[in-house]
Design a protein around this nucleic acid. Sequence first.
DNA 1: CTCAGAATGTACGGAATAGTTAGTTTAGTC
DNA 2: GACTAAACTAACTATTCCGTACATTCTGAG
Lengths: 221, 221
Amino acid sequence: MNDISKAGRTRPPRKPRSPEATKQDIIAVAMREFAQNGLSGARVDEIAAKTGSSKRMIYYYFGDKEGLYLAVLEEAYRKVRTTEAQLDLEHLRPVEALRRLVEFTFDHHTSNEAFIRLVMIENIHHGAYLARSKTIQELNVSAIGELERVYQRGLQEGVFRKGLSAIDLHWQISALCFFNVSNRATFSQIFRVDLSSRKALAALRGHVVEMVLRNVLKSPA
Amino acid sequence: MNDISKAGRTRPPRKPRSPEATKQDIIAVAMREFAQNGLSGARVDEIAAKTGSSKRMIYYYFGDKEGLYLAVLEEAYRKVRTTEAQLDLEHLRPVEALRRLVEFTFDHHTSNEAFIRLVMIENIHHGAYLARSKTIQELNVSAIGELERVYQRGLQEGVFRKGLSAIDLHWQISALCFFNVSNRATFSQIFRVDLSSRKALAALRGHVVEMVLRNVLKSPA
DNA sequence: CTCAGAATGTACGGAATAGTTAGTTTAGTC
DNA sequence: GACTAAACTAACTATTCCGTACATTCTGAG
């Protein structure tokens, strides 16, 4: 359209081609959009627009909208597990290790709303995409191992009660930490409380830790 | 198109006009569809088709898709509160009253997946529609009253520990009972457990009750 | 340098979908 | 039994939105 000759034109921002960066850019943008609007609510055109790339590239790399969603989901889980792996509970006494795990989970969920929302969205879809993913399956089962060891140590030291399992504990911790983020909107509105203030979060965090510990300790604090 | 004269034709199923029934029919169908597919995922045409009525009627009564969704949300909350009101905790000892409330909540949520899913969906939308609804606001705050009385009685009898509030208790009970339904799909898949079997549900129910009681009781059972 | 294949831009097609227009039927009222 | 407003139907429209066809540019290998 313009009359600058091919030879003489100033270079268009000179994007060095890098497929991997393009992919990651798309996934990052898509994660925000899917987390914000859900699978059907998110718009491919909108995602493309917010990308440094184009819609064409989304289809080139991810096939279709669902393929992109799946890639986002996998990336989200991958990040979580990577973070969790940093946690080192082996050198702590059982009670402290458990406390730390709960606090860590609470803090992590609280500051990663996008992940929580993606899991909510995935549950709305009955876990259909998670079922389709091989990589996610592998990532997660291992995550329970460390908790299992903590619980066993607690049993041996005689500080934890019998009758629970690592899965039970994980379920309980997850439930409390997840709900804090997932249902904050409706809960806050119905009971006219602000659950996102620093103060309210600190109180909730304390309650969650206490609840988990009281449930697993042989005698109360 | 056909040649049966107006006067002589066999009557089409002779629907007796009843606006209220039509509305309720639409709401019931829409509740299933919205709970299943979300706000953006649900299709107005699909809802209309499954109705005894038509798409035009949806717009006639509810204005637009969002109006219909709001009506569904209000109806869902209304039903829940109606059911809850049947619960009579006043004549029970505090511990038994609390146990009963937890069991009731667990059972209710478990058998009303549509409601849970609507709340999840509403949270995905940051509670925007709930905020818009006046009727829901009124329904809910009162629900905490009964729990408050139970807790106070427990304190007076010296069986409950201090430092909690009815809101705290409600939050905890909700979290555990809600998560059981809301995250069953992903949780089951990741840890290869079936959490919807009768046996698994009974175990979970027991754990939830125990967890709430251990948290509030002064001394463990 | 050349060539193949990967990466990217542009513009468009076509299905799906929310919402509407214009009219018809019914039920109650005087 | 004529009139009116509410209840209802069928067909249509405008737009949104996923996905693609086609052309082009870049990059690394030989």
